[in-house]
Design a protein around this nucleic acid. Structure first.
Lengths: 236, 236
DNA sequence: GAGTGGTCTAGACCACCAT
DNA sequence: TGGTGGTCTAGACCACTCG
């Protein structure tokens, strides 16, 4: 395995939280216990715990220990959710059709959003996504080639975020998005099977990893009659 | 000083970002440079930088260095923002016209959202809100009478959230909102000064205090051509 | 006093990037 | 090749909490 040890420790603990072995309020093994168990230095065990604290899985109490935080389920509601998660929440079956999957020189705006040099290569992926076989969403996804060297069409048939987190072991942190109501662009009417002038939700999203770097810029066009964007937001 | 060294380093860098000495895209001193400058170990310098990355101030590039990220001001955007804040961010002057301000028996759906008994009294406030004198938003706001006994029309001319937090000393915690694209309802065309069928952003929001109780339920209709909803969301 | 997390050191090897 | 960040070690002292 080339996976860093602290990632292994993190994943082990995450798994125990997700399958219920560790419950909200439970004490997690101390840094010294993890040090023994994984035969690593204390700093390495600490790094794993710190990352989980930053991600909201754990909290610490000086002199007492490290504990599982509440949330867990609520966590899925906060903020960024994938289309797949949204549809699952509504009990709709998801499918996708990929219309385009090619390497292109990044347009200026995209390069800026992805912190790339001008014209640096990006994958441009266009797909239509369906809920219960009705088209819901047309999406243009831009991702840096240098980061996603080995991605295939197959990987995009289901959840891209899932791929990023589990296959690539990257940690998604946050996004900045804008949401507006527009008339559907003419060229999309046939993909979404609607007539001209249909109200459409346009969401532009720039999503970042925990290392502070963006990994996607995506423009999504949602059919107004098929999709309602639900979210849970925390005041800041 | 009892302040940990890494906090000192963080604050020094933050200050340079805030006063403009370090600008978006600039290279921050490397871990080794900070190590020399502050006469600390590399891990300590690294801890300072890592924290700033987690807080969104910096991003890293393996082999290249650590850089100032764009955001900075956008950081305030996390989650719930009031219309007033949104407009201020765009440098637009805000004004309001109150069309209706009355006590009504709460409709069933509203009672449910506000945790009230059926037909318990609520204030229904309808207002049009303007940015630079152009109508941007028509809003129906429902708030419990028992909570806002002494509210006046005057209090609603500017930010309602500001009133809640500073005049009533309540702490806003979070909201659940749905966002969808619709055609403008006929009866609103004149308030928003648009023609029929104009794409409109409908946002329904249920907002809660830190004590877990809801204090408002609001339906907002935003002119699609005037308003883009920008937000910063954290992955859960 | 024993255990915990918080801070810190002085090294090390690696992968990545520019030149 | 030299500089950068990414990972990791084997120690150390401290402040806090609990019995």
């Amino acid at each position: 395995m080339n996976e860093p040890i602290y990632i292994t420790i993190q994943n082990d603990i995450k798994r125990e939280i997700e399958n219920g072995t560790l419950q909200s309020g439970d004490l997690v093994p101390s840094e010294n216990e993890l040090k023994e168990k994984y035969n690593v230095s204390r700093m390495t065990a600490r790094q794993a715990l710190n990352n989980l604290v930053n991600d909201g899985y754990l909290y610490r109490h000086k002199g007492k220990g490290t504990f599982i935080s509440k949330r867990k389920i609520e966590k899925n509601i906060h903020g960024v959710r994938s289309f797949t998660q949204e549809m699952a929440a509504m009990n709709r079956k998801v499918s996708s059709k990929i219309l385009k999957f090619e390497k292109v020189a990044s347009p200026e705006k995209v390069a800026e959003k992805l912190f790339l040099a001008k014209k640096e290569e990006v994958f441009l992926i266009e797909r239509v996504r369906y809920g219960d076989d009705t088209p819901v969403l047309f999406e243009q996804l831009y991702i840096p080639v240098k980061l996603f060297k080995s991605i295939t069409e197959e990987d995009l048939k289901s959840s891209f975020y899932h791929y990023v987190e589990t296959k690539m072991n990257l940690q998604i942190s946050h996004c900045i998005q804008s949401i507006e109501a527009i008339e559907i662009p003419k060229e999309l009417t046939e993909y979404l099977m609607v007539k001209e002038h249909t109200p459409t939700l346009l969401i532009e999203r720039n999503t970042f990893l925990t290392n502070g770097r963006p990994f996607e810029y995506v423009k999504s066009y949602y059919r107004g009659d098929q999709y309602k964007f639900v979210q849970h937001a925390i005041k800041g």
